[in-house]
Simulated scan of single mutants.
Amino acid sequence: MDGQSSLGAFLQARRSRLTPADIGLDTYGERRRVPGLRREELALLAGVSASYYARLEQGHSHNASPEVLDALARALNLDEAERRHVHDLAGLAARRPAARRPPAERVDGATRRLLESMPEVPAVLTGRRADVLAWNPLGHALFAGHLDPTAPDRPADRPNMAALLFLDPYLRELYGTWESKARAAVANLRYAAGRHPDDSLLGALVGELSMKSDEFATMWADHRARPCTVAEQRMWHPLVGALTVTQQALRVSDDQTLLVATAPAGSEDHTALRLLAQATAPART
């Protein structure tokens, strides 16, 4: 899908979720044939002509100014991440993506030292496509203890956190809040796709997951786009049982994110993390 088609699909999806009541519009009991706002209603709210907005949504206009995009974002009640996503999609429409295979993502020495410096905190470093680029022992034990711990060291074998969520039964059982975690992962991928439209590997990942998982395809069609930030996650780990952690996605570069999990000191959840660290620690010789 090219940039203009992506922009139009995003605008249409967001328009369908706004109701007249959301913008204080009285419909006087009128029965409406389509969900959400009509095109002309959103155009009026954004201060553009209905015909221009229709062309924009249909992919027939390629010259939306930043001011128009911001007006549409305000009319659609978009948050800052979604507003940036709209600008990314509009920028994509103005250029032709290059069809090339992107180079393998690398982990610099400073980031590896950061991972090594936090042995008591589960940490996983992911790239722009949610590939696992590195993890510390506790991060591996908490999030993917059933996988080869050396897999991230080999670009061809790197696990992908989004794919694991939808295709690996272990991850589905690990998260008690699986649906919210899965939706956040899909929104993060769509946000990345808007920023990197020429990434053929990202496009291939989305295509593969859409074919293999109806749940992913449904969530992708929802057009939610936002980077992961912070969320509380209920988990059930096969070694330590139930625990609740706060997962934070900390950006260490434009394309790399450090996912960490913490629990309040002295809590049962913190004790569970310490027990997991002890249970998976390498044997001393």
Results as ranks from 00 to 15, higher is better:
residue 147 L to D: 08
residue 188 N to T: 14
residue 76 L to F: 10
residue 219 M to R: 14
residue 224 R to G: 15
residue 144 A to S: 11
residue 152 P to K: 09
residue 199 D to V: 06
residue 15 R to A: 10
residue 89 L to A: 10
residue 217 A to K: 10
residue 252 V to K: 12
residue 73 A to D: 01
residue 25 L to M: 08
residue 121 V to R: 11
residue 247 Q to W: 07
residue 225 A to V: 12
residue 137 P to I: 01
residue 63 N to M: 00
residue 241 G to W: 02
residue 135 W to N: 05
residue 30 E to N: 07
residue 32 R to G: 03
residue 152 P to A: 11
residue 96 R to L: 14
residue 164 L to T: 11
residue 124 V to G: 10
residue 284 R to D: 00
residue 209 L to C: 02
residue 191 Y to M: 09
residue 252 V to R: 13
residue 4 Q to G: 14
residue 198 D to W: 12
residue 70 D to P: 01
residue 240 V to W: 08
residue 41 E to N: 08
residue 72 L to A: 01
residue 108 D to I: 06
residue 253 S to Q: 06
residue 269 D to N: 13
residue 261 A to R: 04
residue 186 V to K: 01
residue 13 A to P: 03
residue 91 G to C: 04
residue 249 A to T: 04
residue 10 F to V: 09
residue 104 A to S: 15
residue 230 V to L: 09
residue 13 A to W: 11
residue 249 A to M: 02
residue 272 A to I: 04
residue 162 A to Y: 09
residue 209 L to A: 06
residue 10 F to H: 13
residue 114 L to I: 05
residue 233 Q to P: 06
residue 232 E to Q: 09
residue 248 Q to Y: 07
residue 146 H to E: 12
residue 226 R to M: 06
residue 150 T to W: 13
residue 149 P to M: 06
residue 6 S to M: 12
residue 93 A to M: 07
residue 182 A to Q: 05
residue 256 Q to V: 03
residue 89 L to P: 13
residue 46 A to R: 00
residue 271 T to D: 15
residue 237 H to T: 06
residue 249 A to D: 04
residue 92 L to W: 14
residue 269 D to V: 11
residue 212 K to L: 15
residue 273 L to Q: 02
residue 41 E to Y: 04
residue 184 A to Y: 04
residue 50 A to V: 05
residue 149 P to E: 07
residue 140 H to S: 09
residue 44 L to N: 06
residue 11 L to T: 07
residue 87 H to Q: 02
residue 125 L to S: 06
residue 113 R to E: 13
residue 234 R to C: 07
residue 132 V to R: 03
residue 91 G to K: 01
residue 20 P to M: 10
residue 206 V to H: 15
residue 97 P to L: 04
residue 93 A to N: 08
residue 71 A to S: 08
residue 251 R to F: 05
residue 281 A to P: 00
residue 251 R to W: 08
residue 90 A to V: 02
residue 40 E to K: 00
residue 221 A to L: 10
residue 178 W to S: 05
residue 285 T to S: 05
residue 246 T to R: 05
residue 2 D to S: 10
residue 83 R to Q: 11
residue 147 L to V: 09
residue 280 T to L: 03
residue 46 A to T: 00
residue 219 M to W: 14
residue 7 L to Y: 07
residue 149 P to T: 02
residue 82 E to K: 01
residue 252 V to M: 11
residue 36 G to V: 07
residue 237 H to Y: 05
residue 181 K to H: 13
residue 217 A to L: 13
residue 262 T to G: 04
residue 37 L to E: 01
residue 261 A to G: 10
residue 206 V to I: 15
residue 128 R to Y: 10
residue 214 D to L: 14
residue 247 Q to P: 03
residue 108 D to N: 10
residue 270 H to E: 12
residue 277 A to L: 10
residue 191 Y to K: 06
residue 206 V to L: 15
residue 105 E to W: 07
residue 14 R to S: 06
residue 234 R to V: 09
residue 247 Q to V: 15
residue 76 L to N: 12
residue 230 V to S: 14
residue 169 P to S: 10
residue 243 L to N: 05
residue 233 Q to L: 14
residue 280 T to D: 01
residue 162 A to W: 11
residue 284 R to G: 00
residue 129 R to V: 06
residue 65 S to V: 00
residue 167 L to K: 08
residue 279 A to E: 00
residue 90 A to W: 04
residue 75 A to T: 13
